[in-house]
């Protein structure tokens, strides 16, 4: 029992460190490094309907496989997209981290995400529930699925020039 608790504490610490690392990459817009965090089959999804998980058959804000992630980052970086050149600056915190499940090397984690964006001297605040499927590898965690559901995902939003 003592051994179990010790392992869980370590896992929560390792997972937290990884999620903070990823959050920092996104705030610093170090997207090339971020792309390398993913498994090849990984999916990055921002759903609209937070109650359903049939993402493939419903409209999402984004439903990115490896190609779409790469294209999205390319669009941010090439400088031809007026909404992302310059992009909004962001500061985010990831907290209330809960390890839901551990199955072999696969870890399911939930967390709260608060993000503040700044552009045109105007700040906007976003809150979201984030759900991650992480794969533990020899070189650290990989993102296999990341689903970020904004609190107002089915409401009136603004355009986003960054990632959650």
């Amino acid at each position: 029992m003592t051994e179990m608790v010790k392992i869980d504490t370590n896992l929560v610490f390792e997972v937290t460190e990884f999620l903070w690392y990823e959050a920092d990459l996104l705030d610093r817009k170090d997207y090339d490094t971020w792309l390398d965090l993913w498994t090849e089959r990984g999916l990055y999804i921002l759903p609209i309907d937070g109650d359903s998980d049939d993402y493939a058959n419903q409209l999402n804000l984004c439903y990115d496989d490896a190609k779409m992630r790469k294209d999205r980052i390319g669009r941010f970086q090439q400088g031809f997209s007026i909404s992302s050149a310059p992009p909004a600056q962001t500061v985010r915190t990831i907290s209330r981290i809960v390890v839901d499940d551990v199955m072999g090397d696969t870890i399911t984690v939930r967390a709260a995400e608060h993000l503040i964006e700044d552009k045109f001297g105007r700040q906007r605040v976003w809150a979201a529930n984030a759900k991650y499927t992480l794969i533990k590898t020899e070189t650290g965690f990989k993102l296999d699925q990341k689903i970020v559901t904004l609190l107002n995902s089915d409401g009136m939003l603004n355009s986003f020039s960054y990632l959650f």
């Binding site: 921002l46 409209l59 999402n60 804000l61 984004c62 439903y63 779409m68 294209d71 999205r72 669009r75 997209s81 007026i82 909404s83 992302s84 939003l157 603004n158 355009s159 986003f160 020039s161």
Partner: peptide, 18 residues
């Protein structure tokens, strides 16, 4: 639709910006 439209599309955010 997701590719072009909406808050995270490759088109709509640029429309909204202009």
């Amino acid at each position: 639709h997701e590719h072009f439209q909406g808050p995270m599309g490759f088109g709509s955010p640029d429309d909204a910006e202009v």
